[in-house]
Amino acid sequence: MNYRLLYFASLRDRAGCAAEAVESDAADPRALYAQIAARHRLELAPEKLRVAVNGEFAAWDRVLADGDEIAFLPPVSGG
């Protein structure tokens, strides 16, 4: 399936881009993160991240659909 990935903060720096299109057989965010973490050498463990799908927070085992926009969110630090 085709997904659009968004990167922020330390993950953006490490991935070297703010967004990218990926083709993947991963069915949920957990499997997808494992794939892209290996490819971009991301070192933040999934337990430290939150997931968003199509602009809303989502669970790691959410079933993804073709065309979904997924973001893995590092710990926030606004304010």
């Binding site: 922020f8 903060a9 968003a52 969110l73 590092p74 926030v76 630090s77 606004g78 304010g79």
Partner: peptide
């Protein structure tokens, strides 16, 4: 409000 903003809103400080 400020406590929740700092803990929950996806904004990052560099």
């Amino acid at each position: 409000v400020i406590d929740e903003i700092k803990a929950r809103v996806p904004i990052w400080k560099n």
